[in-house]
Nucleic acid binder design. Structure first.
Ligand SMILES: [Zn+2]
Ligand SMILES: [Zn+2]
Ligand SMILES: [Zn+2]
Ligand SMILES: [Zn+2]
Lengths: 153, 153
DNA sequence: ACTGAGACTGAGACTGAGTCTCAGTCTGGC
DNA sequence: GCCAGACTGAGACTCAGTCTCAGTCTCAGT
């Protein structure tokens, strides 16, 4: 967590920006979790924690953190962005459960190697890979089996 | 194209719905292209073609077409959905150029096999794979090289 | 043909994520 | 202290997408 503060401060300084109190509040909240979260989650969390920061400032700070590569944005087709620490295992893939919305992760270096190779074959210069597998998590799959069995029996 | 009409009609009949004129207009426009398009693209296209269909009906019809698996939705983090024919090569991946927004495709069966294996290892029941590679297309990469060279020279 | 249930439509109100504006405040260098 | 310019929160705004509703159409049953 010290690292992130350092990197953020450096980035701000380089752009003649300041590490103000609201930005620090957001920074701590962001790096105090290891989940995938949305801007709204964060705003609500700060509200509950008694350290509210305005929507505009939260969005502005999230943008700054993405710009300096401390955060990565993800989109699961819900019309809102999810954020996660860029320092977590790089270029991992996501399993998104369409039934309950749970997000889990996996990492397989072969997948990344393959993507890199494919992109370059097409003359494409890859910056970020995003592998998302939509379907049903183990729990929800089990629930379905039970429900379907009940419907038949 | 006849196939799609047939499938759609079957789906509608099964749900006591009708293939009305507006739905047919949308159907023809959708299967008259092979691009990735947004709802707004489609609405504008129908407008220009002199066969306008209301926003609500376009969205409703796109939902129906997705439900009966004639269309697939994609999200590239632009806050809007892109659609494409499900009949195009299944489970292909996308290369999205962050500079110009161009979308191109690739297909590699190894990628799909790997994803399926990974998902099942996690007890996850995959329904759809979505591999997106963000970066710069060949043209934009070349443009950058030229521009950067100019800046230095 | 007539009728009623219920499907269909377009206009436009609404929602919700995210952006922008602006007036007032804070910061840091002089 | 003074000033340029960065920062903030409130709330207006945008834009994709959804919902509502009153009026229309369809079709099976008569
Ligand atoms: Zn689940
Ligand atoms: Zn993740
Ligand atoms: Zn490009
Ligand atoms: Zn495609």
């Amino acid at each position: 967590m010290g690292d992130e503060v350092q990197i953020f401060e450096d980035y701000l300084r380089k752009h003649s920006l300041h590490l103000t109190a609201p930005r620090e509040t957001v920074l701590h909240a962001v790096f105090g979790t290891h989940e995938h979260f949305t801007a709204d989650d964060l705003i609500a969390h700060l509200q509950r924690a008694g350290t509210p920061v305005s929507k505009a400032t939260v969005y502005r700070t999230l943008s700054l953190l993405s710009e300096c590569s401390l955060l990565i944005e993800h989109d699961f087709g819900q019309g809102k962005k999810y954020y996660e620490h860029a320092s977590e295992l790089q270029h991992h893939g996501h399993l998104y459960c369409s039934d309950c919305g749970r997000i889990s992760e996996f990492y397989d270096p072969r997948l990344n190697a393959l993507q890199d190779k494919i992109a370059r074959q097409e003359g494409f210069e890859p910056v970020q890979f995003a592998v998302k597998i939509y379907g049903r998590c183990a729990d929800c799959a089990a629930k379905r089996v039970r429900r379907d069995a009940g419907a038949i029996g």
